[in-house]
């Protein structure tokens, strides 16, 4: 199967591991990610007011360019922005009209593209039971926690990714790879996000609380889908520290196709 794929800026630079391992791992599972021919930065944050039109246009372009009605995303931020913009497209006529007037496309976007995160792709199109069968290097004995962060989960109604308060999709993924999934309550809280730029202590409080809780629960390593979460978890932890990886690295490792560091 070939799917249209939106990688996003960070995955071309700081988060190469997230991208490369996704491509090779999915390829090993019979899925090819076909990068959109031309894509622009999603803007990293979703503009929440109804009069912000221009900052949502790149998402509309990506939605419009997706083939076969499906667009695969991987970075939490890109997924968040594109999925919410898609929701706006269906719900907000004013936005639809203005964005269309601005883009002047040959064929206007019809709102039918589904935005699918790689985790959702694995869960819904492959299935965790099938994933389990594809594992060649089971991660037996490793105690791994998920750090979901905010952007794939909330607002729950729009993202419709998993239970926003008690998500289980990454835990199921970890178990499918043969490792032990460790849950802890702060896995769905904010990492401190971009505020870390201006005030590291904001991220430190958040990250320390999450890491302390993860360590207490017995986590030995963490995985995430978000480059910003990874940055804060790695660079702004002041007390407990844990190795943090992208979930695709773990996937590639278990499937025996891990790209070099």
């Amino acid at each position: 199967m070939i799917y249209s794929y939106y990688p996003g800026c960070t995955l071309k630079d700081r988060a190469k591991q997230l991208d490369l391992n996704a491509r090779t791992a999915l390829k090993a599972m019979g899925i090819e990610l076909k990068e959109l021919d031309a894509w622009q930065c999603c803007g990293a944050v979703y503009p929440q007011t109804s009069d912000e039109i221009a900052s949502r246009l790149s998402a509309v372009r990506a939605l419009s360019d997706a083939e076969n009605g499906k667009l695969i995303t991987l970075c939490s931020a890109c997924h968040h922005v594109i999925k919410r913009t898609n929701y706006d497209w269906l719900k907000d006529e004013n936005f639809r009209t203005k964005a269309t007037n601005y883009l002047k496309p040959e064929v206007p976007y019809d709102g039918s593209t589904q935005v699918i995160h790689v985790l959702e792709l694995i869960r819904d199109e492959i299935g965790f039971e099938n994933l389990k069968k594809m594992v060649v290097n089971p991660l037996t004995g490793r105690k791994i926690g998920a750090f979901y962060g905010c952007m794939v989960l909330r607002p729950g109604k729009t993202l419709a990714f998993d239970d926003p308060e008690n998500p289980t999709i990454i835990e199921q993924f970890i178990e499918a790879l043969g490792a032990t999934a460790v849950t802890y309550p702060y896995r769905n809280e904010c990492c401190g996000a971009y505020v870390a730029l201006e005030d590291k202590s904001a991220a430190e409080t958040q990250v320390d609380r999450a890491l302390n809780s993860a360590v207490k629960a017995g986590c030995e390593e963490l995985i995430t889908a978000c480059p910003l979460c990874l940055y804060n978890l790695v660079h702004n932890a002041t007390a407990n520290k844990l190795p943090v990886k992208y979930f695709t690295e773990l996937l590639a490792e278990a499937l025996g196709v891990k790209e070099g560091e």
Binding site: D13, R14, C41, G43, A77, Y194, L197, P227, Y231
Partner: peptide, 10 residues
């Protein structure tokens, strides 16, 4: 170390 995502968000 900051990712592009953070710069763009800021």
């Amino acid at each position: 170390n900051v990712p592009q995502q953070l710069l763009m968000a800021a």
